[in-house]
Design a protein around this nucleic acid. Structure first.
Length: 606
RNA sequence: GCCCCCGUAGCUCAAUGGAUAGAGCGUCGGCCUCCGAAGCCGCAGGUCGCAGUUCGAGUCUGCGCGGGGGCACCA
């Protein structure tokens, strides 16, 4: 069992024990059928679950699933499958309550520790992506304000997923979509202009619904310091355009700095505007027009997924009461429109009538269409992952519809919706918003808590769960945050290793990472926990739910504590100490890997 | 009116349809002459309701109840 293959692909072998068991069960069922122990039926795909620890390491419930097809009791089926399972050095099999339970042997578990050590930084990597290009587009907040903690949640999720897809064998591209087109940008420019003038003592009122926040004021000041007062004498319209552009660049520079502090990096900042200037928008719309899915109606251009006409009453903003009455009005005339049943509601792409400014006639959806084409078809990202806040919830169905309409495979597009962060303020939950002036800047939180604690909070809940952010608690929480529990375990291992290094016994302990031997239940449980890493990477890569890491990281630290409390390293007999030191190192590698996947540091001292 | 998400312990959250639903915080009680006590051990405490599907439901389906978000010229 030695040789190059094992050295280079150890991580693959470790991961394969689970799949090996699956196949062994399928073969055993077939063998049982051939021997007449089981009747004929189609063999289903076998799934393995993680049972309670006292039941073993993997459990198959296939016997219960087969009870009906085989017309036999689950227990009897399980026993007959087990009868045809050949003995294997890596595991033992027990039948209990209709389950087939597989327990990895101490010898097998012991052997995996040296495999982990040999895999090193690559430990935990899997080959799910097979080198396919994937993209995670995240962040993408409007460049009209500093990064809020909402943005922090977005990029922490996105960055962690990008790390994960990389570990899962994809070539990953990280992108921020810059909304540098549209009316908000113009409004932002006007706000910058007003603050710029005020900075130089010239009286200039803020535009209606302008950006009133300090972040815009500070950005305007920075612009003023850069370019001086030269725009005071330029015509206002020109000055607004020029200062708006400078303002966006300055704001993006601030945001990029915040991202760096958060340990988030991007490969590209993609300009929304470029979709128009390059003609990509026109080309994508032409494809839809050729399919008859673009409709002129009421002075606007609409996307209608099935080409059906725009319904009466769709073209104006409604109140809740109007929606209610609308529904009852429409029932008669819509009864025959069966093909609209499954299509998404038509959506405006461009309006000539209501929006006066020609530059602002396109809606966001107008750029979403060429953008998805650009991602999936032109750049070949499969999947193209979107990370969106829940205010974009209604856009999900539309983008999928547009993807289908363009002839792309919608399975190549993965849109994630995370829930908002609300603020605890005076005992009340409040929704945060830049316009409301109660936004919390990521930089301020980083000043107080640091990137690791912030990322940990952002990852600690499923994206489907809102996060309630309490600034007062956060301030006190510095040393109580659960992230320190995980990092502490890592630092503690480093400390042990330092101690071993400085003691005289270092040669004995470090001599050999082969033939390690473990017997104590705390040792074996720790190894079991470490061996879950590739499966966790697979879980996060397939579900795109990064919070699983937080649970797993804590479990590793917990298992290590159990080992630490029960199994002394330095005082143990030399051969025992040698094995345990290597297990501690494997634990350190695994902890560090999970922390790095989450974008956090693995400190050697705290 | 319609669509999406959520409802699990006092609080904040976990749980690929599997066996006895797990953690943290908080409460209470223990553990440093011993590799880092930012730690460990213990006690107490829970699936919103009613049906259904399934060998098996916190998980899937339907209907309620409660909360959040959205429903076309705002990004």
């Amino acid at each position: 069992m030695t040789g190059i293959a094992q050295c280079r692909y150890t991580w693959l072998l470790i991961f394969m024990i689970r799949d090996h068991i699956k196949h062994a069960i399928e073969h055993a069922i077939a063998a049982a059928q051939a021997a007449g122990d089981l009747p004929a039926f189609d063999i289903p795909a076998v799934n393995l679950a993680k049972p309670r620890p006292d039941m073993g390491d993997y459990a198959a419930s296939v016997a219960m699933q087969l009870a009906r097809a085989a017309k036999m009791a689950p227990m009897a089926i399980a026993q007959r499958i087990a009868k045809h399972l050949p003995a294997h050095p890596a595991y033992t099999v027990e039948v209990a309550a209709g389950y087939l339970n597989f327990r990895l042997t101490a010898a097998h578990l012991s052997a995996q520790v040296s495999d982990i050590l040999q895999a090193g930084a690559a430990w935990g990597n899997i080959n799910l992506g097979k080198g396919q290009q994937a993209q995670v587009e995240h962040g993408s907040a409007n460049p009209t304000g500093y990064a809020t903690i909402g943005t922090a949640r977005n990029v922490t999720v996105g960055d962690t997923l990008a790390n994960t897809l990389e570990a899962a064998g994809y070539v990953v591209h990280r992108e921020w979509y810059v909304n540098d087109a549209g009316s908000q940008v113009k409004k932002f420019g006007a706000s910058i202009y007003a603050r710029y003038c005020q900075h130089f003592g010239k009286d200039e009122p803020m535009p209606a619904n302008g950006y009133m926040g300090d972040d815009v004021t500070q950005t305007a000041q920075r612009v003023a310091e850069m370019v001086g007062d030269q725009y005071l004498n330029t015509p206002k319209e020109q000055a607004i355009v020029a200062l708006g552009r400078l303002g966006i660049d300055t704001m993006m520079a601030t945001i990029k700095h915040t991202m760096t502090r958060l340990n988030v990096r991007f490969d590209n900042f993609f300009s929304e505007k470029s979709l128009y200037s390059s003609g990509a928008s026109d080309r994508a719309l032409a494809m839809l027009r050729a399919k008859g899915l673009l409709i002129e109606h009421d002075g606007a251009l609409w996307f209608s997924e099935d080409g059906s006409p725009i319904r009466k009453g769709q073209a104006k903003k409604k109140t809740d009461a109007e929606y209610a009455s609308d529904a009852s009005d429409d029932t008669d005339e819509d009864a025959d429109e069966s093909k609209t049943q499954n299509a998404v509601q038509a959506v405006v792409i461009r309006s000539d009538r209501v929006i006066s400014d020609p530059d602002e006639r396109a809606t966001y959806f107008c750029s979403d269409i060429p953008y998805v084409w650009n991602k999936v078809h032109e750049r070949g990202f499969k999947p193209a992952v979107y990370v969106w806040g829940e205010d974009h919830q209604a856009d999900v169905a539309r983008l999928y519809a547009a993807t289908r309409a363009l002839g792309l495979n919608e399975n190549d597009v993965k849109i994630l919706i995370y829930r908002f962060i609300t603020l605890m303020s005076g005992g009340q939950e409040v929704r945060m918003g830049k316009r409301k002036g109660n936004a919390i800047w990521t930089d301020d939180v980083l000043d107080q808590a640091g990137p690791d604690a912030l990322r940990y909070i952002m990852l600690s809940r499923s994206i489907d769960t809102k996060i309630v952010f309490d600034l007062d608690v956060l301030k006190e929480q510095n040393d109580k945050n659960p992230v320190y529990y995980v990092q502490y375990a890592h630092a503690r291992i480093c400390s042990i290793e330092r101690k071993v290094e400085s003691s005289g016994s270092v040669d004995n302990l470090k001599s050999n990472i082969q033939n390690l031997k473990f017997e104590h239940v705390a040792e074996l449980n720790l190894i079991r926990k470490l061996l879950e890493l590739p499966e966790i990477v697979e879980l996060v890569a397939t579900t795109l739910q990064p919070h699983h890491y937080v649970t797993y990281a804590r479990e590793i630290a917990q298992s290590f504590s159990g080992f630490y409390e029960n199994c002394r390293i330095i005082d143990a007999a030399p051969d025992v100490a040698a094995s345990r030191l290597q297990l501690a190192k494997a634990s350190r590698l695994t902890l560090a890997k999970v922390l790095h996947l989450m974008g956090m540091t693995a400190p050697e001292k705290m």
